[in-house]
């Protein structure tokens, strides 16, 4: 085990193992940093959601906490005007491509977008960006769960667990930029893909894009 170091986050002194990623150290100490794409234990975090920005003493600009290894004497601030501005922009961009229909969403109350909005005082009603064309296709083909791309925030957690943890390789990213999405080979539906319905991807989805079918609603969906 590597040696213990002491760092300062928002004035609090915290000791943790050197080289651990700052995001997890902060979260373990009860200091909230918004995050969507990072998963504990990743060698190379994708750092794609652009939400976990913090300012580190000695660094010119804000850095992503999920990729920042901690060092002795590090001084971190999680809330500065620059950080808040970056996080707000990233959050608004995510919402511009997220079908907001919380009251009909199974993740309502457990959604990580809602957590970020609450923690950082961000809301959907502030000067929304022009929404992207809605993705209306919903894949209900798997027996146990549903994939709704209209709610997907492209964090990539499902892709990572599918390929790295489950070792299945049924889903991945396709396209680029505005066309980027989570899909299967040849855009087939999940039932025709190698998907084993292990459910790992559903468990890691931070929003309501992947959700288990409710027994009560199953007959309705099948008909």
């Amino acid at each position: 085990m590597s040696k213990k170091v002491t760092i300062t986050i928002d004035g609090r002194r915290i000791s943790a193992h050197e080289g651990e990623k700052l995001l997890w150290v902060a979260l373990d100490s009860g200091i909230y940093i918004p995050h969507l794409c990072a998963i504990r234990g990743q060698d190379r975090p994708p750092a794609g959601c652009r939400l976990c920005f913090v300012e580190v003493g000695g660094r010119l600009g804000p850095v992503t906490a999920c990729t920042e290894p901690i060092r002795e004497g590090m001084v971190v601030r999680t809330r500065t005007p620059r950080v808040d501005r970056l996080v707000e922009t990233a959050f608004r961009l995510l919402l511009s491509d997220h079908r907001l229909d919380c009251k009909n969403c199974t993740k309502n109350g457990r959604c990580e977008l809602q957590v970020i909005a609450r923690e950082r005082g961000l809301g959907p009603d502030r000067d929304p960006l022009q929404p992207l064309p809605a993705k209306t296709y919903i894949d209900e083909s798997p027996r146990t769960f549903v994939f709704d791309p209209g709610r997907c925030v492209l964090c990539g957690r499902c892709v990572w667990v599918d390929q790295q943890v489950a070792g299945v390789g049924a889903i991945g990213f396709s396209g680029r930029g505005i066309r980027r999405r989570v899909t299967t080979f040849g855009d087939s539906n999940l039932a025709e893909s190698p998907c084993t319905e292990c459910g790992l991807c559903v468990e890691v989805c931070p929003v309501g894009a992947l959700f288990f079918k409710l027994p009560a609603k199953k007959t309705k969906g099948d008909s």
Binding site: Q163, G169, G172, F173, S174, R176, R179, T183, T184, F185
Partner: peptide, 14 residues
């Protein structure tokens, strides 16, 4: 030796 969906991702990226 990679999942087919990864190759598909690369092919649709470019």
């Amino acid at each position: 030796g990679v999942p087919a969906v990864q190759v598909y991702g690369a092919a649709t990226f470019f």
